Amino acid sequence: MTGSGTRRLGLSRVGAALARGWRAVSWYVKELVGENDYERYVTHLRRHHPETRPMSRREFERAKLDRMDTDPQARCC
């Protein structure tokens, strides 16, 4: 490839690298704030307890907050 073909290839690599970086940062932030907890809970429940109906996201978040209130050691601040 010569000229603009090489330039396009370079730009597509940069775009792909930026997309990978964004996904990594997004995953990290979601892990820090607990955004992925519900998905992990549902996956665990379906794998290990398929007969059990999972809580809704709202119920899950409410239970999580209640746990944090009753066990202050479980939170960071």
Results as ranks from 00 to 15, higher is better:
E35L: 14
R47A: 15
R47N: 12
V25F: 03
M55C: 06
E61V: 07
L65C: 05
K64Y: 00
L45H: 09
L32C: 09
R13Q: 14
S26K: 10
R75P: 00
P54H: 11
W22A: 15
R8C: 04
T2P: 05
R58W: 05
Q73H: 15
D66G: 02
T2S: 15
G5P: 00
R47G: 12
G21V: 02
L9K: 15
R57P: 01
T2L: 13
R46Y: 11
G34L: 01
V42I: 09
V33Q: 07
A24S: 09
P72K: 02
S26F: 05
P54L: 04
P72R: 03
R7S: 05
E51R: 12
V25G: 05
R7F: 06
H48V: 13
K30G: 14
G21N: 08
R75E: 00
V33G: 06
E39A: 15
R67S: 12
P72Y: 01
T70L: 10
R46T: 13
P54D: 07
G10Y: 10
E31T: 04
Y28N: 01
R67V: 03
A19C: 07
G21K: 05
W22G: 10
E39K: 14
L32G: 04
E61D: 07
V42Y: 03
Y38S: 00
T52P: 02
W22K: 13
A74G: 09
A74Q: 08
A19K: 09
T52C: 07
P50L: 07
W22S: 13
R40K: 15
N36Q: 11
G10H: 13
T52F: 04
L18T: 06
S26C: 08
A19V: 07
M68N: 03
K30N: 12
R75I: 02
D37G: 00
N36C: 09
M68A: 12
R57S: 02
T43N: 10
L11G: 06
